[in-house]
């Protein structure tokens, strides 16, 4: 699905995945995509968002406030301690090899039915929908490429997601932003 994404758009998605991993979140959500959009300040969407006082630092703080950073994960460290296993020591060794958060997500099946490790965080249904909507927005605007602005339009259209709610919470008028992005694309 990413073949038609521009370099900026790809970097935005990559940044979203990195942020979800770093925060040890189970999935890459629209909130991480929003961080991705803000990670490249020179892009159209970042400029429009920053003009509305929405920046990376502020969104990150909001996400941590809402979701927490799941440091420590969901494995019962106290129970393991009773049989002499120091989970933090195990985690440190594993993260050295497989990266931050590798033990914090359970394995999951991909679309083809293969069982994948928790090394990479899967996209949430909302985030997948947002990327599909980005594609549709690009088609509707007769664009050959999927650009950062299309991802932002997708995020706005998937209006109930956490990413969009964070924007609304920051006082952003979504319909006005949508009109402005469409004009500029």
């Amino acid at each position: 699905m990413f073949e038609r994404f521009t370099e900026d758009a790809r970097q935005i998605v990559t940044h979203a995945e990195e942020q979800a991993r770093r925060l040890r979140h189970r999935q890459v959500g629209t909130e991480h995509l929003l961080l991705g959009l803000l990670s490249r300040p020179e892009t159209l969407s970042a400029r429009l968002l920053m003009a509305r006082d929405v920046d990376h630092e502020r969104v990150l703080a909001k996400i941590v406030q809402i979701l927490g950073d799941a440091t420590g994960g969901d494995i019962d460290a106290e129970a393991l301690e009773t049989i002499g296993i120091d989970l933090s020591a195990v985690r440190e060794k594993i993260e050295e090899v497989f990266g931050v958060g590798a033990l914090d997500r359970g394995p999951h099946r991909n679309r083809r039915g293969a069982l994948l490790s928790g090394r990479r965080a899967p996209f949430s249904p909302d985030a997948k929908k947002t990327l599909e909507l980005a594609l549709r927005e690009a088609l509707a605007l007769k664009s050959r490429d999927i650009r950062d602005g299309h991802i932002l339009l997708g995020l706005i259209r998937e209006g109930e997601s956490l990413g969009a709610r964070i924007l609304v919470g920051a006082g952003v008028d979504l319909p006005a932003l949508r009109a402005e992005v469409r004009n500029a694309l």
Binding site: A79, L80, V90, L103, G106, P107, L115, S117
Partner: peptide
């Protein structure tokens, strides 16, 4: 807890 840990390590 150990089973959860093993599942993840194995994957």
């Amino acid at each position: 807890a150990l089973r959860l840990l093993v599942e993840r390590l194995e994957a």
